[in-house]
Design a protein around this nucleic acid. Sequence first.
RNA 1: GCCGAAGUGGCGGAACUGGCAGACGCGCCGGACUCAAAAUCCGGUUCCUUUCGGGGAGUGUGGGUUCGAUUCCCACCUUCGGCACCA
Length: 815
Amino acid sequence: MYPETEMTDQTDQYEPKEIEQRWQRVWEDARAFHTPNPEPGQVEEAKTYVVEMLPYPSGELHMGHVLNYTIGDVVVHLRRRRGYRVLRPMGYDAFGLPAENAAIRDGVHPRISTERNIAAIRDQMRRMGWAMDWDRELSTHDPEYYRWTQWLFLRFYERGLAYRKVGLVNGCPVDQTVLANEQVIDGHCERCGAEVEAKNLTQWYFKITDYADVLLDEMDLLEHWPERVLTMQRNWIGRSEGARVTFRVAGSGEELPVFTTRPDTLFGATFFVLAPEHPLVSQLTDSEEVREYVRHAGSRSAVEREKKEKDGVFTGRYAINPVNGEEIPIWVADYVLMGYGTGAIMAVPAHDERDHAFAERYGVEIRPVVRPAEGDLEAGAAFAAHTDDEVLINSGRFTSLPSPQAKKAIVEWLAERGEAEATIGYRLRDWLLSRQRYWGAPIPIIHCERCGLVPVPDDQLPVVLPDVEEFLPKGRSPLAAAEDWVNVDCPNCGGPASRETDTMDTFVDSSWYFIRYTDPKNDQEPFSREIADYWLPVNQYIGGVEHAILHLLYARFFTKVMQEMGLVGFREPFARLFNQGMIHKDGAKMSKSKGNTVDPLAFADRYGADAVRTFTLFLGPADQDMEWHDSGIEGVWRFLNKLWRVVLAQVEKPRVEQASGLLAQKAHQTIAKVTDDIDRRFAFNTPIAAVMELVNEIARTPDDPAARFAAETAVSLIQPYAPHVAEELWSRLGHERLWESPWPEADPAMLERDTVEVVLQVNGKLRDRLQVPASIGEEELVALARASERVQAHLNGSEPKQTIVVPGRLVNFVV
RNA sequence: GCCGAAGUGGCGGAACUGGCAGACGCGCCGGACUCAAAAUCCGGUUCCUUUCGGGGAGUGUGGGUUCGAUUCCCACCUUCGGCACCA
């Protein structure tokens, strides 16, 4: 079982490289971290499912990975040793643009480069010593995986949750593909930074907007998600309550619905605005001026539109305001967006900053209809902040009603006549999932001239991605050129048909992988529901905050749909989420272009994987951004060397079964702190400091009868961080298999101290300290405290007005 | 503008429930070892002041609650993140 070198070739030097290789082999041979699924019907036992966001296989492990997977490793080791059945798999998010762009650049097929990168990154992960169940490894580019991604797509399609529509989409001119809204940052492609272009195209969408409310409401099912992530998702969904109010075109009576969050300001609407793309514009007028404006607006990008001053053009037509029958001019202006609400607004210049700017420019009436309940009515401050204590003015029968009531009353009044209804607006749009690129899972749909859209029958899945030679996208998928693959018989009528050539967004692949892990080799279904329901929801999900919106929102959406299909029995995929911070260097994010990256494997070569792992977590709280200093790892290196020396000095000492005394007590306190910090507080830096303290203490008193016990405790507690050196020292201490040895338990009796140090204060200022028996009575303690010379000096002979006693902590005299 | 997070020594950070501010580490200073240096080990290290006993100040700023505030409350400043011509 154990390598022969271990007992015979005992050098005094800590040689991480040799130790780490040796123990990695031992774990592999012992299949130490393989976790089988429970047998069917097996009694429920304590289980934990830990998932870290799977890496994109770039071929090189970076510090972000090291932090992510070391956090997971610490949690996993602790829970395994506390007797849980722990599932901890790993996989690769292998489809996507980087591999494809590399193929275009270097002429290597993406599958070849991806698989080469996977082999490299797998090897690097092993060198870091992470306790993963490699039997469950999966990759999203594997046909055995994407077969089920396609299968799930078809189930969504059957339910009307995957659909095709013509619409304005964001296209990236560099990556030559359309993007989901979530992949557009400030009007630019999130990948390459190019400014996106609006295009009218037919694309595939997932109907995530149907789940907008559920995605908000069911945040309550999440036990422990960082507030910032919930906030980001709330912002992204962008729910706002308001009303849909129907205006009509004067003359024709054509309906012009608008969405507003301020129905209380309806009496202040002095004009009406349509987005340039609004379909009614061309019906309302054939004015050349309007057509010219619409054409011009269409050529401006969203970024340009926002930067310029508001402008617009009058259509010559009027809209009738349903609250008072007033006719107000209809304008076309590109500050109104077609994509939100109805693409038309009622403009209330007195209470909306944008409408105000527009009205000022074109001389439209500005009519105030609400004023603050009390306080100043400064000009210009009217729309500064809308609050609930405002009251209506100039609003007919609603005048002097408080704003919140007025909102309701006006909508109800209009609703009686069918001219309004309370409704909710969302910022969230449907998820655009088709991509005009090669390296992704093909969308399993066939276009038949006679039958239209025909889903690929389940028994013909997977639709395997064909090998092509030319990856360069030309605005259509490179797959379109693979004619043998494209041209097929219609599964329905047998007539000539062609395959869909777009591939799926890689976020589809990663929206369900955490369930596939539970049953990764299933070739009958994506996973067994029984097994999935045993492991999920994931007890602990760990990953970077960059996925706060995209991946986490999509995965939540997928899970809800799968639950409604009866595929799983849970509504939320990740019960707890931990977002690690980013590791910076020289005050900035690490990036290749800045040249401030740190190669973890290079440091592992020099100091050992144990030191890299430990230092990464010692940097600071793992959920905050951290600053990497090369000199810092020296400190951890010194610590591990000190541990090595201090522990080896105890090997020959007798083991005292019931160790007592201060050092034993310190050891028990350290057990309690490390356990609580990791398991309850998710604090990973402070346990290292606690073990350092313990080791420093042993080094000071190596001949203490409890020194050996304390040393064994230190080794046991550092194991989740530095598993190799811990295992080596454990075996030299004469034990076996630390990785499955029970986690130490703090003896409550040992945590209680016989004597305690009490702080003596006068007027809240520290004046003296006192060692007293823990069991001392209050009166006796006060008497002792008063007797202190230093206290006496500050009391100046006067009698304390008040004496505060906190048992076991302090006595405070107030004079 | 709206929403969220955070401000503590020279630096990273600790202080978990209102009770010893600065654990642990880096850096720096001193010492041991060395012909010497590096490495290693040991000790010191918030600031001001001191007759070397001590005294005073101190957790972004200003106020408040409290015997007592890094911690709670109010106002403000700064930094970071999200959303934003979203009606």
